[in-house]
Amino acid sequence: MTVETPFSRSAILDRLARRRDAGEPILSASAGIGLVARSAEAAGIDLLNIQVTGISRHLGVPTTTTLGNATALTIEALPEIANVVEHTPIIGGLEATDGSRRDLRATIRRYRDLGFNGISNFPTVGSMLTWADIRRSVGEGIDRDFQLIRLAREEDLFTLAHAYTADHAAELAASGADVVVARCGATAGGMVGQPRENVSAEAACEYVQSVIDSVRRASADTYVIAHGGPFATPEDAPSLFASTDADGIHGESAIERIPIEVHVAKQVAAFKNQRIRVA
């Protein structure tokens, strides 16, 4: 039996259009635990994503996708997030090359019936281009990403697509993606992120704009938001919006790792700085 979802594709697109028309950035975030999801919703997040990498972030280790079956872990996480989220669409990561789920349409329909309001191609072999080319020859390559997005569009389900190159982004947009995430590499900073001196904001902005230009040629209606690299804090965002036509930001470590690291450490230090009465 199909579960009625509160956010149709058209309703989500209307929500994003209102943001852009108001000159406000679209903000999408990964939320691996209910506390992050609830806090993000309270602050007005536009899209909440369940991704397998969120689990590793809440384990306190560097981000990784190699924690088990990504799709199964995403499905398992949904009840915790849906339990505390009332007003925000929940997007579920679906690994298109999962050999145990060859029927993508059936999996998409299962996601919808479970209560997901949209689909993302996460994780994707797009992050491993050589491997993607090898897997293409056996029908398990990057073409599955594009098939996933096309099928979700046919099912009228909202799609957020992660892109690792301008060409990858264009194909995702041509396949019908509603939002393309221009991934700029691992997020810098914090306790387990790459060193900030290793990333260039200028280079990241150039890459994001190349993705935007590529996407616009394929689909004028697709939003493009940036993720990772130097865009780790709100203080990093002005350079992105001043130098590119990006519609917003997708935060993973920027939303569910670095703020926790910073504020828990700050809170503990503040308590430790108190003094007790000594007899």
Rank of each mutant, 00 (worst) to 15 (best):
D98I: 05
D98M: 05
G99T: 14
G99D: 08
S100R: 13
S100C: 13
A106W: 01
A106Y: 04
T107D: 07
D113Y: 00
D113S: 13
N117C: 14
I119M: 14
S120Q: 14
F122G: 01
V125D: 15
V125R: 15
T130L: 14
W131V: 11
A132Q: 12
D133L: 11
I134Y: 11
R136S: 14
G139I: 12
E140C: 03
G141L: 06
I142K: 14
D145V: 03
L148T: 09
L148S: 11
I149L: 11
I149K: 02
A152D: 01
D156G: 01
D156T: 02
L157H: 00
F158G: 00
F158N: 02
L160T: 03
A161W: 02
H162E: 07
T165E: 03
D167L: 07
L172A: 09
A173V: 06
A173D: 05
G176L: 13
D178H: 08
V180T: 07
V181I: 15
R183L: 12
T187L: 07
G190T: 08
V192P: 00
V192I: 09
E197C: 09
C205D: 01
E206W: 06
E206C: 05
Y207M: 06
S210M: 09
D213S: 13
R216K: 15
R217V: 06
D221V: 03
D221G: 11
